[in-house]
Design a binder for these strands. Structure first.
Lengths: 212, 212
DNA sequence: TCAGACATGTAAGTCGTTACATGATTCA
DNA sequence: TGAATCATGTAACGACTTACATGTCTGA
């Protein structure tokens, strides 16, 4: 397998988690993992077939499927081993390429106004993102507090192949993990907003406050 | 130019900021921008020549250079215009692909211990990163408070072609901008550590605290 | 019957890193 | 003289997205 092969392991991990088709994987990523991961069809299908070639997964046609025949992929024993070995390997920090900070830096020889404008754009963007995350947070928290299963989780439930009437401990644990990863997105977005609040007055004053 | 062409604009922006060679750009990125950007030689040199082909930059040999002849690139008028237009375009959110959160999610059907281990690894990693950032913070703050120019800034000073005896207002403004982008890295790293502190006890308890 | 959802896939191109090749100068 | 550093560049690969092509079933 290739150098980092993050996509390979992401997909291998998902089919270890639960046998799935390429389409299921895409749904799963869009509904549940979108706060910290993305995959496109152009990666998913070639990768799945590559996993089969490498003996890490098997493919079989789902006999129950209506529509075009679903190809369901399942991790083999050696696939699981490979996945578990990857889990234990040290994890790189996410790649840093923050376009807005680059723009901000590059305006340092222009008018201060330009930097202020960029910071305000950043704040607006992050606040919108935050609002979206907080909506999801409420949905997950409702489910976790046993106060019913919000409609918005239905699609996720279906992808996970759960019946909506009975929530087992394991399912509730999985919803908890969704919630926890979501919290991380919220804390980071809040930190970015806090950064703007800290930095705007300094930039406008042109210097650090005396009280540092 | 290509779809997003972040690298093109990053490099164009740097030579608008100040005429530089490919080698200077690499240094600049490593010393000053590394908290939010990266570029490799494999991108820098082809991109610089592409900018010349497109009429956005000019190349000339630096007559004063010892060693192998330096090729110094300068933005043309149309290069500057292009760069300024890019600055005003809406900025995408950074791409999300956080490998550790993926691992954390994928362990949700394994033993809780595995998730705990990953969170602790994340905390350690972030704390190390934070310590490094805070060292740099002290260095920049010292310079900004006029308490002398720390040795560690020498390389940066040289890349920016400043003599170390006189710090003009403009130079001090640029150091301020370095400092402000650094603060952003610090706030985000702190938020990630806070996330671990929040999440570890919840994961170990297996449920949200009653007091939510 | 036909729009829309489900489902799988490919081609082309963009984006980015790593490893390597090369050459000149400085200084111990 | 020869190691370190400054400096430029390419080839090969790997990572990822977008747009497109295709096919099947369901239900209005």
């Amino acid at each position: 397998m290739a150098r980092k092969a993050r996509t390979h392991y992401a997909i291998l991990g998902l089919i270890c988690w639960k046998p799935m088709s390429g389409y299921d994987i895409k749904k799963m990523v869009e509904v549940g993992l979108r706060y910290f991961w993305s995959e496109s069809y152009g990666q998913i299908f070639p990768t799945l077939n590559r996993l089969v070639d490498d003996g890490l997964a098997t493919k079989k046609v789902d006999p129950e499927s209506g529509g075009r025949r679903r190809q369901v992929y399942t991790a083999t024993r050696s696939g699981r081993k490979r996945f578990e070995a990857w889990l234990r390997q040290p994890t790189d920090l996410p790649r840093l390429r923050d376009e807005l900070k680059l723009k901000f830096f590059l305006t340092s020889r222009s008018e201060t106004d330009e930097g202020v404008r960029l910071l305000e754009e950043y704040r607006t963007q992050q606040l919108e993102h935050l609002a979206m995350l907080k909506e999801s947070e409420v949905i997950f928290a409702t489910a976790l507090q046993g106060a019913g299963m919000p409609e918005e989780l239905d699609q996720l439930m279906k992808t996970l192949d759960w019946s909506d009437s009975d929530m087992t401990d394991e399912q509730s644990h999985e919803i908890l993990v969704f919630y926890l990863t979501l919290r991380s997105g919220i804390l980071v977005a809040e930190a970015r907003v806090a950064w703007v609040e800290e930095v705007l007055p300094i930039l406008q004053a042109g210097k650090l406050p005396e009280t540092l």
